[in-house]
Write a protein that binds this DNA or RNA. Structure first.
Lengths: 124, 124
DNA sequence: TAAAGCGCTTGACCGTTCATAGCGCTATGT
DNA sequence: ACATAGCGCTATGAACGGTCAAGCGCTTTA
């Protein structure tokens, strides 16, 4: 867990592998959202976890939080430049998933090795 | 958690966000490893967790396990084609990390927004 | 007047991850 | 010849972190 000097790749992985982070970023790439809206778009995340994630991402400078009014509560979460830059990562994951992932017999995803080559597909 | 049809991106994220998976893949991209060797290279992972991850990744077809001898035990874990293909994802993460991540005041990583523009960086 | 929605927070659960120890056995060093 | 270290794991119990369900004060919609 301890390493002599700062390794950007390692640090990046540490952040991105946290549960829900990639889903949150992917959703936010589609545009700014409020808390509950974001929660619904991500799907299945519980508010406590979302709150913790957003706070961390904000402190890191990946996400910025804008409070439009306190009462009634109205807030907006947006990606910063660094956050938007993650679209490259999401893009790679997207490409890889489309190319290699199929749904297996038991419903869980499986890799299908060498199928028909790259087929241009539209993004969600 | 339930979704009407199979979404490759979502499924890919589900797999890759599992703790240690990206670290394992990244390490395995450097070449095949035995269990303890892999454990040491990844750094800080618990053997029980590693065993579970490897089993899942193998069942998914990302990693293949080769047993050279049962006694003395000698095993090798290698990436399949689908696994190797993840180097694109790792590459993106690498690029993003190098571009945006710095070590903050409290030791935790922080994003440094608009610095000097894109600078060609060599990959690990 | 009632109900639904906003952005969260709280507290009790429970599954995952952790540190640590150990198995049977061989290759190495002294 | 003997001790030690190494292999690939598995077994424990404790610690951590995510989950569920409910609810706060308040406004807007029905």
């Amino acid at each position: 867990m301890e390493q002599r000097e700062f390794c950007p790749v390692h640090a990046a992985i540490q952040v991105l592998q946290e549960k829900w982070v990639l889903h949150i970023v992917r959703t936010l790439l589609e545009g700014p959202r409020g808390f509950n809206d974001l929660s619904r778009s991500v799907g299945g995340i519980n508010p406590a976890t979302l709150a913790v994630r957003l706070e961390r991402l904000e402190r890191m400078g990946l996400v910025s939080k804008t409070v439009h009014s306190y009462m009634p509560p109205r807030t907006t979460y947006t990606l910063t430049d660094a956050g938007v830059a993650l679209h490259g990562v999401i893009g790679s994951i997207d490409a890889w998933g489309r190319r290699y992932l199929r749904v297996g017999a038991e419903g869980e995803p499986v890799c299908s090795g060498a199928l028909s080559a790259t087929k241009p597909t539209a993004t969600t």
